[in-house]
Design a protein around this nucleic acid. Structure first.
Lengths: 229, 229
DNA sequence: CGTTTTTGTGACAAATATTTGACAGCGACG
DNA sequence: CGTCGCTGTCAAATATTTGTCACAAAAACG
């Protein structure tokens, strides 16, 4: 989970390499591909936090990749930044309507792209920007590694902390055990799905308080969610 | 839910009026001001869902407004779209670093701005961007796995949930038991047709409410349909 | 009205899913 | 080295859902 992951879909090898280097320097994990179909595979496999998508790529076209990412439930909420050629305003609008969150026309300065990416990251994963995240009566301070409920400090184990953090970054949404495993343990862990249940239990036990309702909702046959209210 | 509210901070009366008109047509509530200080007052008073902020305005400057909006806890998380003059890339970058979420250089097409606004809205308040399905007094939020009727949360078993979801995606249409089995249980299930009846009953029981009519219509010798009550 | 067809209902056992307590392995740390 | 906290797995205990029945109720039909 920890470093935010980008998926960069870019044709031009020089640009791709430059951007990859710059983003890694910013502390992002970066996957790169030049091919639309491969992009979809990668996205499905290791759900990224953000996709940077060139409009003109090999294989499946940019707009199609965008559409499919949106259609797949697992990636439906991943922000997408499109890169288009200067002057292709119609492409841009179609892209935004298809579900992209932002776009940039080439040529652009890497600095500008980075600024945009972090603007989006701040919104998507505020905890990474050192901000306090609030959900219901819970408060999470990522930099201080501290959780508070109704003013009371809560102490959680590392895994429970990451789990709660992930939930708090997506309040209300239901995640399957598999998704939680990917997000909290990492994509390449071969851990039993049931283990998630156990950690959910530990999380619940950790944050339970006299007279306070359990904010972790079990959605039978689907997964778990952190109650938005 | 009430319509999303925009705060438009724009100097140019003609542009302001045009945008206000367009956004109202899109279903947004719009407050307009040309003055930076007034913008801050308005924002504090009726916290908007999004701010569109011209860089060059009277009173407090755009960047200062941006900074202060971010500093005030109540408005710290409200997305901001900046409008800057063409070529002021540095302004733009400073803006994004100050906490703006997006920017547009003038001149821009209203359509483009609208596309961006709804892209952001989709991200911020997914509930407003059509992720909610509404039929009559029923509301279904697929990502939260939640059904609401007249504001009351309804709890349904997995199958009933899928059944209702399917109905809500095709409101008014009549489906035979066989079609429902295919759609909700899967094409390769060898389940008694009558089982559908039982689940329809469970669905009805789940969503029934004091003084509310039953939206599930039985069509004798044909099947069932969900009506918009 | 009696008969036939179709749908609504309550009950229930089997199947599924989740919760919980226990436990052994591991690594950090004194 | 011993202790302690954290992890991942299990399996038993619970809880919930599911598909079917049998029968009641309702509707269609002659």
């Amino acid at each position: 989970m920890n470093p935010p992951r980008l998926l960069l879909v870019e044709d031009d090898p020089a640009l791709a390499e430059l951007l990859e280097f710059r983003f890694r320097a910013e502390g992002y994990g970066v996957s790169v591909t030049s091919d639309g179909d491969e992009a979809l595979l990668l996205a499905a496999e290791e759900i990224p936090d953000l996709v940077i998508l060139d409009w003109m790529i090999e294989g499946t076209s940019g707009i199609e990749v965008c559409r499919r990412l949106r259609r797949d439930k697992a990636t439906a909420h991943v922000p997408i930044i499109m890169l288009t050629a200067r002057g292709a305003e119609d492409d841009m609008i179609r892209g935004l309507e298809t579900g992209a969150d932002d776009y940039l026309t080439k040529p652009f300065s890497p600095r500008e792209l980075i600024a945009r990416v972090s603007a989006i990251m701040r919104r998507i994963r505020p905890a990474l920007a050192g901000e306090l995240v609030n959900v219901g009566d819970l408060t999470l301070d990522a930099t201080a590694h501290r959780v508070t409920r109704r003013g009371q400090v809560i102490s959680l184990g590392p895994t429970e902390f990451r789990l709660l953090k992930f939930f708090m970054e997506h309040p209300g949404r239901v995640f399957s055990r598999g998704q939680l495993l990917d997000a909290v343990w990492g994509t390449d862990s071969d851990i039993e799905l049931r283990t998630v249940d156990v950690h959910i239990r530990r999380l619940r036990k950790g944050i339970e308080q006299e007279g306070a309702p359990d904010p972790v909702r079990t959605v039978r046959s689907a997964g778990y969610a952190l109650e938005a209210v």
